[in-house]
Design a protein around this nucleic acid. Structure first.
Lengths: 185, 185
DNA sequence: GTTCCCATGTAACCCGTTACATGATTTT
DNA sequence: AAAATCATGTAACGGGTTACATGGGAAC
C-alpha cells in the first residue's frame, strides 16, 4: 500500500477548493488568518504542497500576468482532486489533536522559577491570548457577514479557537488568583 | 553559536528533576499521564533525550538490579544539569504554542461532507474530550492530595488542559445547537 | 530612497513519529 | 497457554521548520 499523504496536503487542497483561482501567496495569507488555529502551515510547506498537488493532477495551475505586480500562478482543483478531497473527508478523522506549548511546559516546572518570572510568563501568555482572541473575533464577524456554507464551516472552526482562547484567559485569572492567596508562590 | 537544544530535551531534564531516580520506563508513563497535555513526548524520543542528557553530563545514570523485573537504569540531574535547567527556565518563553487537530481541520471543510458524517465527527470529538477531561480530573485530584510546590505546578498545567477540554465540549454543544436550527446543514 | 507589498522559490536540517525487536517475569 | 507488565532499544522516514534569495513595482 502506498503511504497515505499527510493531512497538510489535503488542507491545501481544501484551501484551493474554497478559494479557487488564488495564488500561493494569497493562500498563504488565508492560511495564516483562518487555518492556522487548527492546522498551521508555513509558507514553504504550502508552496511544496501546491507543487505536489499539481504533480498529482489534483489541481490545475494557470499563469496570470499582471501589470503593477509580478505575474502569478493561480490554482483550481481538478475533477480528480475533488474526488480525492471528498474521499478524504469521508474517512474517519483522528479524534486526538496535538498541542505543544513551550510556555505551559515551562509552567510545569514553575516551582524552579523566580515567582516574579512566573508572573511575567503569565502576563505574556495573557497578552498573546488577547491578541489571538481579538483576531478570531474579527474573523468571525467577517464570516458572519457572508452566509455561504463555506463561511459557516470556517466560522465554526474559528469559534473553536475563540472558545479555547477565552477558556485559557480565564485559566490565567484562576492561576493568578490562587497565586494571590499564596497557593503558588 | 551552537544551535539551541529543543525544548523536549529540557522537558525530559525537568522530568528527571521532578522524579529523581526514575527509569526511562517510569518517566515515559509519567510523561504520558501528566506532560502529554502540553508537551507530548513519545517513548522513543524520551529515551533518545535521556541519552543526550547523559552525554551532555546533565544527568547521571545508575544501574539498578531487580529480582522480579529486568534491571533498569535510573537517572538524576547533575549540578551542570540543574544549572542548565534553571537557565532555560529563566529565559523568555515563546508565547505561541502550536495546535494541530485533524478533526477540526476536516470540520473546516464540513460544507463538503455528508451532514450525518459531520454529526459523527462531532460525537467522536465529544467522546475523546470526555475521556481527556476525566483523565485530567483524576490527575488533578491526585495532585491535590499532595501539597508540594512540584505538584502544585503540575496541577496548574493540568488545569489548563482541563479548562481547554471543557470549553471545547461546550463548543461542541454550541455547534450542534446551531446545526439543530438549520444553520449548519 | 528606503521600506513595504507582491510573488515564488531553494537549501538544509532535525525533530518526532511509527513500526518493530527482544526477553524475562507475573498475572489471568 | 496467553496476555500483560517491565524495560530498553533500533531503523527508517518525512514532515515541518528556519533562514535565506530574488526582484520588480508601489508607497511614504
Amino acid at each position: 500500500v502506498p503511504t497515505p499523504l499527510p493531512d497538510s496536503t489535503y488542507a491545501v487542497l481544501g484551501l484551493v477548493d474554497k478559494l479557487p483561482r488564488s495564488s500561493g501567496y494569497e493562500l498563504v495569507a488565508v492560511a495564516r488568518r483562518s487555518l492556522a488555529h487548527c492546522w498551521p502551515i508555513s509558507q514553504t510547506l504550502l508552496y511544496r504542497e501546491l507543487e505536489r498537488l499539481d504533480q498529482l493532477g489534483w489541481v490545475e495551475a494557470t499563469r496570470v500576468e499582471q501589470v503593477h505586480a509580478p505575474s502569478k500562478r493561480v490554482y483550481q482543483v481538478s475533477e480528480a482532486g475533488a474526488r480525492a478531497l471528498t474521499e478524504w473527508l469521508a474517512q474517519a478523522a483522528p479524534t486526538t489533536g496535538t498541542f505543544r506549548s513551550g510556555l505551559i511546559l515551562r509552567f510545569f516546572f514553575a516551582y524552579r522559577m523566580d515567582p516574579r518570572h512566573v508572573r511575567e510568563l503569565l502576563d505574556g501568555y495573557r497578552r498573546a491570548l488577547h491578541a489571538q482572541r481579538d483576531e478570531l473575533i474579527a474573523l468571525i464577524h467577517k464570516l458572519e457577514a457572508m452566509t455561504t456554507p463555506e463561511s459557516r464551516a470556517g466560522r465554526m472552526t474559528a469559534l473553536h479557537g475563540l472558545r479555547t482562547a477565552e477558556a485559557r484567559l480565564l485559566w490565567a485569572d484562576e492561576v493568578e488568583a490562587a497565586d494571590g492567596e499564596g497557593n503558588l508562590a
